[in-house]
Amino acid sequence: MSANNSADYQQIFLHDIPLIDVRAPVEFAQGAFTGATNLPLMTNEERHAVGICYKQHGQKAAIELGEQLVSGDVREQRIAQWRTFCQQNPQGYIYCLRGGLRSHITQRWLKESGVDYPLVKGGYKAMRNFLIKVNQQVATMPLKVIGGNTGSGKTRLVKALPFGIDLEGAARHRGSSFGRTLESQSTQINFENRVAVSLLKKQHQGICRWVVEDEGKTIGSNHVPLEIYESMQTASLVVIEDPFELRLLRLKEEYIDTMSAGFQQQYGEDDGWVRFSHYLHHSLFAIRKRLGMERYQTLLNELDSALHHQQMGQGSDKHENWLVPLLIEYYDPMYSYQLSKKSDRIIFRGDYNAVRDFLLNDNH
């Protein structure tokens, strides 16, 4: 019985179906899917050579060259990797760029070795286009934006709401100069793919309205999908207004306590501490010109003092000595100015719980 090739991209993404990506590593690095493992038919160099041959001598010559380059022990090693994957993931699929030669060759070689394994029709291009359309479609649905000063718990609320789209989570960045996380940001394509898959799963649960955090065009190095960003520019705003002390507590917990523990857990105590210190120094340095050099130097001195106390086991409370003026003198005025330009779109203000209840009970 032959393997059942599939063009049901929705089911593949809804169920996180494991995928063998047989494209070259350079293609995989530019963009792929969360459930994909790169087990290439050809290396970057082999693909490059076959590509030149195809342009100069046509498809038949290119296929012959590919067969020569991937033969003998090299071929057996690659088939063995695919076979292992197939055994571990019997419900998976193979894909290449367009569902063409590479995935069919992989499928044929596997079948000759006794494994009948399906491929994705249309390959990467078709799956990518499917996800682009998901983002475009979602942008036409009812959307509200959660605003509020730094530390208001906007991201926390988006994550807590069943209809929240966590753009920062998909971008692996929290949006400000201090926004990097312990996970590296990925390519723009991978960011857009993660957003689309998240939306697809929520749609499948019957969700047909959305809430996002008030974001700029970019989150770290990733750009918010254009259609979603444009929809955000006309959407109604709800604004969290929490007490300063509560916002400060959240910021210290998220950016100091959690990050320092995370760095040390990931890199070990000594290296983790160095990396955590560098993260805070780099983040403050990134906004030095907007702060002004005199204010930057004052805050830097307070940061260094706080890090020293923390490293000596005296807790993280000293960080408030630079966090408080940074909020009062920089972040709060900046966000207030940005919010003033959107004031005509604000439909509700309240503390975290009031905004949550408003959104949960909102039927518009």
Score class of each variant (00 low, 15 high):
residue 8 D to I: 07
residue 9 Y to V: 05
residue 10 Q to Y: 00
residue 12 I to K: 04
residue 12 I to A: 04
residue 13 F to Q: 02
residue 14 L to W: 07
residue 16 D to P: 04
residue 17 I to C: 13
residue 20 I to E: 04
residue 24 A to M: 09
residue 25 P to H: 04
residue 25 P to V: 03
residue 25 P to L: 11
residue 25 P to G: 04
residue 27 E to L: 06
residue 28 F to I: 10
residue 30 Q to C: 11
residue 38 N to W: 13
residue 42 M to F: 14
residue 48 H to N: 14
residue 48 H to M: 14
residue 49 A to F: 00
residue 50 V to H: 06
residue 52 I to H: 04
residue 54 Y to C: 09
residue 59 Q to W: 03
residue 60 K to D: 15
residue 61 A to L: 05
residue 61 A to E: 13
residue 61 A to Y: 06
residue 63 I to A: 07
residue 63 I to T: 09
residue 66 G to M: 06
residue 66 G to N: 03
residue 72 G to T: 10
residue 72 G to P: 07
residue 73 D to A: 15
residue 75 R to I: 06
residue 75 R to Q: 15
residue 76 E to A: 15
residue 79 I to A: 10
residue 80 A to S: 14
residue 83 R to T: 15
residue 83 R to Q: 15
residue 86 C to G: 01
residue 88 Q to K: 11
residue 90 P to H: 03
residue 95 Y to P: 06
residue 101 L to I: 15
residue 104 H to C: 12
residue 109 W to A: 06
residue 113 S to N: 14
residue 118 P to N: 09
residue 119 L to D: 03
residue 120 V to L: 14
residue 121 K to Q: 15
residue 121 K to F: 12
residue 123 G to C: 11
residue 127 M to S: 08
residue 128 R to D: 09
residue 132 I to A: 05
residue 133 K to Q: 13
residue 136 Q to I: 03
residue 137 Q to V: 01
residue 138 V to L: 07
residue 139 A to L: 08
residue 142 P to Y: 00
residue 143 L to Q: 01
residue 145 V to H: 01
residue 146 I to W: 05
residue 147 G to A: 12
residue 147 G to E: 04
residue 153 G to S: 12
residue 154 K to H: 09
residue 155 T to Q: 10
residue 155 T to C: 07
residue 158 V to A: 09
residue 162 P to Q: 09
residue 162 P to M: 10
residue 163 F to I: 11
residue 166 D to M: 06
residue 168 E to D: 02
residue 168 E to H: 02
residue 169 G to Y: 12
residue 171 A to H: 10
residue 174 R to E: 10
residue 177 S to V: 11
residue 178 F to Y: 08
residue 179 G to T: 08
residue 181 T to Q: 13
residue 181 T to C: 12
residue 185 Q to A: 03
residue 185 Q to N: 04
residue 188 Q to E: 05
residue 189 I to W: 08
residue 190 N to Y: 11
residue 192 E to P: 03
residue 194 R to K: 06
residue 196 A to I: 07
residue 197 V to Y: 05
residue 214 D to T: 02
residue 215 E to F: 09
residue 218 T to F: 14
residue 223 H to C: 12
residue 227 E to C: 12
residue 228 I to Q: 02
residue 229 Y to R: 10
residue 229 Y to P: 00
residue 229 Y to Q: 04
residue 231 S to A: 15
residue 236 S to N: 13
residue 240 I to M: 08
residue 245 E to C: 08
residue 248 L to S: 10
residue 248 L to W: 00
residue 252 K to N: 14
residue 252 K to G: 12
residue 258 T to M: 14
residue 260 S to G: 00
residue 261 A to R: 13
residue 264 Q to T: 08
residue 265 Q to V: 00
residue 272 G to I: 01
residue 272 G to H: 05
residue 274 V to S: 13
residue 286 A to N: 06
residue 291 L to I: 07
residue 296 Y to F: 15
residue 297 Q to Y: 12
residue 301 N to I: 11
residue 305 S to H: 14
residue 310 Q to M: 13
residue 311 Q to Y: 15
residue 311 Q to F: 14
residue 317 D to C: 00
residue 318 K to D: 15
residue 319 H to I: 02
residue 319 H to V: 09
residue 324 V to Q: 11
residue 325 P to V: 05
residue 326 L to C: 01
residue 331 Y to C: 05
residue 333 P to D: 02
residue 334 M to I: 08
residue 335 Y to D: 02
residue 336 S to R: 15
residue 337 Y to C: 11
residue 339 L to H: 04
residue 339 L to R: 07
residue 351 D to L: 09
residue 353 N to C: 12
residue 358 F to V: 03
residue 360 L to T: 09
residue 361 N to I: 02
